[in-house]
Amino acid sequence: MTDPAFPAQQQPPGLTGAMDPVPDHGESSYRGSGRLDGLGALITGGDSGIGRAVAIAFAREGADVAIGYLPEEQEDAEETARWVAEAGRTAHLLPGDLTQEHTARALPGRAAEALGGLDVLVNNAGFQMARRDSFEDVTTDEIDRVLRTNLYALFWVTQAALPHLGDGASIINNSSIQAFQPSTALLDYASTKAAINNLTVNLAAELGPRGIRVNAVAPGPIWTPLQPATQPEEKIEQFGKDTPLGRAGQPAEVAPAFVFLASPSDAGYVSGTVLGVTGGKPVF
């Protein structure tokens, strides 16, 4: 078990190296068993945090990956690609700002071309901002960034990915415990995650006849670069202690849920579900 305490810290968004402690993405722990052999996966926000852990796990399970990320996060993306290569698989780095519709809609085609096809789409990119005192402090620009990153981009990327996804393909959306137990400081972020749950269920119903499975993973408090970049320092010191397990989770502890849902053999009859990885917080 990891130490539940984190030192107070803040940092610019998106970079892993300055975090204390550095998150565990499964670099030394995840062992694959060929569950995704030969598949091609697109992971948005795949440069760091949960996205990096999923990329490493997918690669060790036999998948090649395309990673979408913001251009300013190139350093983290290259580190993720290095771990994918060490697993003997290929990582294609595809920078771009998904809050721009043309960039988001172009990404799946770029990924499919690089991978030689597309079998799994992981909608992982997300943004939150908790440094505010009340609902009245939320600005239009903040709302717009959260909605465009978490929801609009998911719509655009998924719509553009569908022509490349065939029978047996899988879409996995990153939801959150915030969809079920929203924090007042994250009301805009929590709203998008509740919408993602609804979208997941609806898409599963619509795409099921095409043989495409759609699911979501709802992480609890997970130690990723998003936390020290968007939470007050005093919140970081208490981060995750309110879970029944008494600690925050690591990205490496979330990645196996994505592997399970992506695996045609393990989750071939699983669609329309939201799988919680929350340290004991309920997802219903």
Rank of each mutant, 00 (worst) to 15 (best):
R110Y: 09
A205M: 12
F135I: 14
I50P: 02
A57H: 02
P12M: 10
I196C: 08
D119H: 15
D37W: 06
Q231D: 11
D188Y: 00
I236S: 06
L165P: 03
V65P: 03
R31Q: 15
T278A: 10
A262S: 09
N174E: 12
D242K: 13
P282T: 13
A106N: 12
R105Y: 00
Y69Q: 11
S48F: 01
E237F: 05
T243H: 12
N197I: 12
R89Y: 08
P244K: 10
R213P: 08
L226N: 14
T16S: 12
D188G: 00
A252Q: 05
L187Y: 12
Y30C: 06
A255G: 08
L151S: 07
V217G: 07
W223R: 01
A91M: 08
P108N: 05
D47R: 07
R82M: 09
D20W: 00
A160I: 05
L207A: 02
L39E: 09
K281V: 13
A41D: 10
G38H: 02
A229Y: 02
A267F: 05
D24W: 00
R131Q: 15
V65H: 08
P232E: 09
V138A: 04
G279V: 00
I236A: 04
T90W: 00
Y30Q: 05
A160T: 01
R210H: 14
A66C: 11
G38P: 01
P7Q: 06
F6E: 01
S170Q: 07
T2S: 13
R213G: 12
A106P: 09
S175D: 09
L118I: 01
T90K: 14
A53K: 05
V122W: 03
N215V: 02
T158C: 06
